[in-house]
Write a protein that binds this DNA or RNA. Structure first.
Lengths: 216, 216
DNA sequence: TATACTTTGTCAATGCTTTAACAAAACAAT
DNA sequence: ATTGTTTTGTTAAAGCATTGACAAAGTATA
């Protein structure tokens, strides 16, 4: 058991992927799996898998492997997806709309409780079963409902002011889809930046490298 | 100059972020910057910045720093955003729709040339200035237009078959928004997975860790 | 019950990334 | 011109993450 020590970021980032693979195996009716077999399926080393699981105290059994259902539940617990945190979405444009309707928040530890926008044409419409509220009512809403995280789907130039305001209203974390970098702005506020533009540029680099290799 | 050697993934992943910060500085009219000052702005170490730029051959000048415009252009060239690769989008649902309309492909090295869907109700509608084509015409289209990358915005269960087909039609890379993992499937095919669900779960973990720290 | 096999948990070794340190080079000011 | 300051490019050290190796502990089989 090393649960008290800080677990490294690379390990944490791999947990959702383990969770996905285990869910699939569970659905297929598979009961147990060895680190060896899982490593082949996932394209990792067996050693890394054992090392990863051991950060939280080893759920396996020698000569047997890991019980899939148990391991799946353990990882779910580590990630904390069973305590549903309250999420609000800021910005009901194209991207915000897609995020609200496309994702299953429930099985990822969240409940989307409200959507805000400052465009009068959008306020009052229904998105993903929720009526879009006016951004002016954000403060009052937060004081009453105490949401845990905010999903930022607004233009980059409004990101900083909105984030600052939300932090002052007690928000504990951001899922940030704006180009603006929130990472180094606050202490003790969780931030997940989803920089789609950066990701696309990285793909661009890869494509060009492959082209170089083929042609040169 | 180390350009021949393979540059490591962490370095490449930081390039788009440098590019963003430099663009902003350029817009502000700043002409030069030292690694020290940039490090403060970006929350990195100056050493890392110099090390990163040196992978491609040092664009700075001792006692002066880096010329912002030049550095910005160099990084753009390294990423290859000036040769516009052709991109097609598969799946014009909520997410596909948002991707097509929300992102500026042009300044990230791509041109979105077509959108495909297999839903007859969606085929023929216009999304982001492009008429949605029928997935049945994909093969013919690819043979004629030779797109470079495909953006996958389809349900996970169709990801593998679609990707296999696209690879056989000459696609060189994927921007994969499905839950399905494409990483270990092909040789010499570029893949950028955008696992939004994984990202959300990671945020969930962070929130719960902060809560533990506050309460325990 | 004994024997052979499997597979974990863990320690040590390797490999990779980041940070620190500093000489060499350019700039700035007198 | 000279002197002091700035700041890079680069080498060396420190810090992490991944992989390899193996004893210990379980399973499976006869």
């Amino acid at each position: 058991m090393k649960e008290n020590n800080q677990v490294s970021v690379p390990v944490i980032k791999r947990l959702p992927r383990y969770h996905r693979y285990l869910e699939e195996l569970k659905k297929m009716g598979v009961v147990r799996i060895s680190s060896k077999e899982l490593s082949v399926r996932m394209g990792l080393t067996a050693s890394q898998i054992r090392q990863d699981f051991n950060c939280f105290g080893g759920f396996g059994q020698q000569g047997y492997g890991y019980n899939i259902e148990q391991l799946y539940n353990e990882i779910g617990n580590i990630l904390g997806i069973n305590n549903k945190s309250k999420a609000i979405l800021i910005g009901a444009g194209n991207l915000g709309h897609a995020i609200a309707t496309h994702l299953n928040f429930q099985n990822k530890g969240f409940e989307l409780i409200s959507i805000f926008d400052n465009n009068p044409e959008v306020v009052g419409t229904t998105v993903g079963g929720l009526v879009v509220l006016n951004s002016n009512d954000l403060e009052e809403f937060c004081k009453k409902e105490k949401p845990d995280i905010a999903i930022l789907c607004i233009p980059a130039e409004y990101a900083a002011e909105n984030a600052d305001k939300l932090v002052s209203l007690g928000i504990k974390g951001f899922w940030n889809f704006t180009q603006y970098d929130l990472v180094h702005r606050y202490e003790n506020i969780a931030v997940e930046n989803v920089h789609l533009g950066d990701s696309l540029m990285t793909l661009c680099y890869q494509i060009n490298e492959i082209d170089k290799g083929v042609e040169g």
